[in-house]
């Protein structure tokens, strides 16, 4: 299925969980926060939150800023 990952289309397997996707992308779950369709997806539920076709994901981290 297709999702929108940080504004870019991306193909992932059906019903993948957020936790599985982060692991697949080698992202440290401690250092990122995830939003699905504009709502925060709390970290403690990444393992049970499955994605569906067309979901819009924002995966953010910290960068330098003022």
């Amino acid at each position: 299925m297709n999702i929108l990952f940080n504004g870019e289309p991306r193909s992932v397997r059906d019903a993948i969980t957020i936790a599985e996707l982060l692991e697949k992308l080698a992202l440290d779950p401690r250092r990122v926060a995830v939003e699905v369709n504009l709502d925060l997806a709390p970290r403690d539920r990444h393992g049970e939150t499955t994605l569906k076709e067309g979901d819009q994901l924002e995966v953010v981290t910290l960068v330098g800023g003022g």
């Binding site: 940080n6 504004g7 992202l27 990122v32 995966v59 953010v60 981290t61 910290l62 960068v63 800023g65």
Partner: peptide, 10 residues
Amino acid sequence: ITVAVRREKL
């Protein structure tokens, strides 16, 4: 110290 929140660049 301040930090900003930005999209993860893969």
